[in-house]
Simulated scan of single mutants.
Amino acid sequence: MREEPRLRVAAFRPDDERLAAAVELLESLGADPVPDPMLAVEPADATPRTDADYVVLTSKTGVELAAEAGWSPNGATVCAIGDATAASLREAGYTVDVVPEEFSSTGLVERLEDEVAGARVEVARSDHGSAVLTDGLEAAGAYVHETILYRLVRPEGSGESAALAANGELDAALFTSSLTVRHFLAAAADQGIRTEAIEGLQAATVGAIGEPTKETAENAGISVDVVPERADFETLACEVVEGAAPTYHD
């Protein structure tokens, strides 16, 4: 009996426990992971302000950097975008006051817009944070300050998935932010295969973790097949692998 080929699925998470967890999850789903980190963290040696009424953390990385620096919210209402960020805050000993139902900048703005008029809101995140969050809070009447905790750069040597896509050998791709899309395309361009990689993704199942990521991909000519309602990696991976299952190669 001939063994069915395994789906080749690219994951672009940072090369730490997140990428290891992505590989483990994809293997458990019966896929062949292609770990191709498209993000690396460069700390900015900054900490969130301590005089705000609300403090917004948007990622596990940001929480870890704030905690390592000994940051204290000083009675501020602590807001987390997503369960992973909230869990990191609790693990570091912080109380989490607000987690929006929709794990996105838009979801947090909708959760806070009726209560932040005149309040000081500190947004602590990476250098690639969406303006949707800061603009939305300002439109709701808040005084918003943004602190860049870290920069996200493309690691050297990234791009294995782009070469596979260009050769028609990638079955699925899991884009977890607009920046992973841009870095994938930059890695492809460095190899002189940007057009071929985009064409290769047309035959693959492409997942995007939210609408902004989908928009970035589609503006670059990449068709997106899956955008899960719940914006987390496990849901994205499960839905993409399920959607890609009929596309096994002979």
Score class of each variant (00 low, 15 high):
Val23Pro: 03
Glu27Asp: 08
Thr61Ala: 05
Ala208Gly: 13
Glu122Pro: 04
Glu110Gln: 14
Asp53His: 13
Pro14Met: 10
Pro43Asn: 02
Met1Lys: 07
Arg90Phe: 00
Pro155Ala: 02
Asn167Arg: 15
Ala142Met: 06
Val56Glu: 00
Phe103Thr: 00
Asp51Thr: 04
Pro100Arg: 05
Ala44Thr: 04
Val78Tyr: 06
Ala244Glu: 07
Gly243Arg: 14
Ala139Glu: 15
Phe233Ser: 01
Val109Arg: 10
Asp127Pro: 06
Gly141Cys: 07
Leu137Lys: 08
Thr147Arg: 12
Ala140Ile: 00
Glu218Arg: 14
Ala76Trp: 03
Cys238Asp: 12
Arg120Gln: 13
Gln202Pro: 00
Glu146Pro: 10
Pro33Asp: 05
Arg6Gln: 12
Phe184Trp: 15
His145Gln: 13
Phe233Val: 10
His145Ser: 14
Asp32Ser: 09
Glu110Tyr: 04
Glu160Pro: 02
Ala163Pro: 00
Val96Ser: 04
Asp15Cys: 07
Pro73Gly: 08
Ala131Asn: 06
Val241Phe: 07
Arg90Ser: 02
Val34Arg: 12
Leu236Lys: 05
Ser28Pro: 03
Gly129Val: 04
Glu64Ser: 11
Lys214Arg: 15
Ala231Val: 00
Ala92Arg: 15
Val153Trp: 13
Arg2Asn: 08
His183Leu: 05
Ala244Lys: 06
Asn167Pro: 01
Ser178Lys: 05
Val206Cys: 12
Glu24Phe: 00
His249Gln: 15
Tyr54Asp: 01
Thr85Ser: 08
Val153Pro: 02
Ala11Glu: 01
Pro100Lys: 08
Ser223Arg: 15
Asp135Tyr: 10
Glu215Pro: 03
Leu29His: 10
Arg151Tyr: 11
Glu234Asp: 15
Leu170Asn: 01
Glu160Ile: 09
Ala244Tyr: 09
Val99Arg: 00
Ala52His: 05
Tyr150His: 05
Leu133Pro: 01
Leu179Cys: 01
Arg6Leu: 09
